[in-house]
Design a protein around this nucleic acid. Sequence first.
RNA 1: UGUCCGAUGGUGUAACUGGCAACACGUCUGACUCUGGAUCAGAAGAGUCCAGGUUCGAGCCCUGGUCGGACAACCA
Length: 565
Amino acid sequence: MQESSTIKHSNSGRSRNFIEESIEEDIREGKNKGRVHTRFPPEPNGYLHIGHAKSICLNFGLGAKYKGLTNLRFDDTNPVKEELEYVDSIMEDVRWLGYDWGDRLYYASDYFEQLYEYAVILIKKGKAFVCDMQADEISATRGTPKRPGKESPYRNRSVAENLDLFERMRAGEFPDGARVLRARIDMASPNMHMRDPILYRIIHAAHHRTGDTWCIYPMYDFAHGQSDSIERITHSICTLEFEVHRPLYDWLIREIEIYAPRQIEFARLNLSYTVMSKRKLLKLVQEGHVNGWDDPRMPTISGLRRRGYTPDSIRNFAELIGVAKRDNVIDVSMLEFCIREDLNKRANRIMGVLNPLRVVIDNFPEGVVEEMEAVNNPEDPDAGTRRVPFSREILIEREDFMEDPPDKFFRLAPGREVRLRSAYIVRCESIEREPVTNIVTTIHCTYDPTTRSGMPNSNRKVKGTLHWVSAPHALESEIRLYNRLFRVPDPDDTEEGKSFKDYLNPDSLRVVTGYLEPAILTAKPGEKFQFERVGYFCVDKDSSGTNLVFNRVVPLKDSWTKAGG
RNA sequence: UGUCCGAUGGUGUAACUGGCAACACGUCUGACUCUGGAUCAGAAGAGUCCAGGUUCGAGCCCUGGUCGGACAACCA
C-alpha cells in the first residue's frame, strides 16, 4: 500500500482564507517583489501534535501555493528545556507529513552572535539596559494588566556602563539570575510586553547545539522576530497568543533597523475529547497514563502515525478545518472522517473475528479445505484478490448471532440464512450450549453448495453478509482497541477541585485476541487493513514474527448499533 | 478604570468585499449493496450575539452594549 507520495495543491475552488487574502494583497501591492517565504518554527521541547500539523500544513502549504519557500527553524533559545531527541522527532514528523524544507534547516541558536550584536545596537541607542533586580522584584514592579509598572532603578545607567556590564554577562562574570538585559520602552504601557521586557538572561547551562559557548541566552521575544527577519521571512504565521507580542517585535525591528516580516495570527486547533497543551501531554506521558509520546491514543503526530493515520488524511484534515481567528473546537468525528475516507480507498480488506463464536457446517465434508477467492479492495480494482481457506469449522462474530432476534436483525439466527462473505450461504440449524451457564458455544449450520461466490446461483438474495474465518486456519493476534482518551468533550474545562486527568476514559484501551485470515501473516508494521465490517487496523511496531499486534485506527461507521441494535 | 482579538445551523469554514446565508463534518430518511461499510438521492437544522444608525437594501459599514478569548514566566 502506498502511503503518500506527491502533495496535490488543488486549490480545489475553495475560497481563500484570511491569510491567503493578506498574502495576495501583499503580492498585488508588490511587497517583497511578490516573494512569499514562510517558516515553521517549533521549540524542540516536546513532540509535535495535531495542532502543530495544522500549522505545518498551513506554512508549507502557503509556501507551495505561492511558489515560495518554507524554512524549518528550531527556536532553541532555552537550553534547559530543549533536547536533541525532540529535534529529531520533529524533523521526522514534518517529513512524514510530506513536507520538505530543502537545505533550509535553521536554528535560532545559529543567530546568537547576530542577536548579541542587535542587543549592543539597542544599548548604544539607549534602548536597552542591564538591570540588576532579582526575578521576583522585576515581576513585582511590572504591574498588572490594569496597573502600570514601576521603572527599574537601573533604567538610567549610562550607555558605557550598560555596554560593559552586558559584555561581562557574556563573559560569564555573573551567576544565573544576577542580571538581565532589558529593553527600555514604557513601564506604563497597557501592553505588558512593552514594559521593559527582558531580552537576555544568564543561564550557565550547555546548549544542545552551541555547547558552552554562551552563558547568556536571548529570550524568545528577542530571538523569534529577528530570526524571521534574518531569514527574510515575508509572512510570519503564528497563533493568536502572539498577537500581543507583535508590537514588541515591530518595535525591536524598527529600533534595530532590519527587515520587517509581516506577522499574521490564526486560532490554534482544539479537538474534542482530547487535550492539546504540551504540558498536559507531557504529564500523561510522565505519569504513565499512556505508553509514551507515540501512544496511539495521543494526539501527537507520532501517536496518530502509530495509530494508523496517514499523512494524506492529516493534510486533508488540516485543509477541511480551515483557518480563522475565532476560537474553535473541531469534533474528532472530522478527523475520523478523514482517515476513513482515505483508508477506504487504499486499505486492503481482510476478515478477522474479534469475539469468536464457533460454527460447524454439518454438511461440509470433514478434512476438506476450499480456497475462496476474495476481493482485496472493492474500491480499487488494481488491488487484486487473495485466497481464503474455508473449512467445516469456522468462527463468526458473536454479535452476528441472536437466538431471538428483532425484525431488523439481518444476521444469523435459528432457521435463518446468511451469506458468508466470499463463500457460501449458510442456514442455522441448531445451537449447542454450555449446560451450566447456558451460553451458546456452537452453532450448527448447513451450507448450500450452489451458492459459492461467483457461481451461477450465488446471487440469491439473503438479508445479511457475515465475515468469518476458518477455525483451523485462524491466526491469533493481539488486537488493541482504542477509544477516545477522555470521557468528556472538553477535558480542559474542569470542575472545582478536579484536573483534566479526572476525565480520562478508563476504557481508552481494550486488548482482545483476534482470529484473522492467514493471509495477514506477511503484513509489515505500519501496514493498514480494513477488517471487513469491523474497522480499520494498523500493524503495530510491537509485532514480531508470527505474533502480530494490531491497533484499531477507527471502527467502521455502524448504522446498526447506532440505531439501537 | 486596562490593552488587544473575536462572535454566522450541533461543529468548523464560506458568502465574489453592501444584493434575499453556502459548503463540509455530524444527524435523519430512502435507494443500492456478497462489508448494516462505500456509493447515490433527499431532509431537518442558522436568519448571522443584542440595540440603535447609515442605505432602496446590512452577516458585511458606523455607534453603544453583551458575551468569549489572550496578555502580569529570567517559558516558547
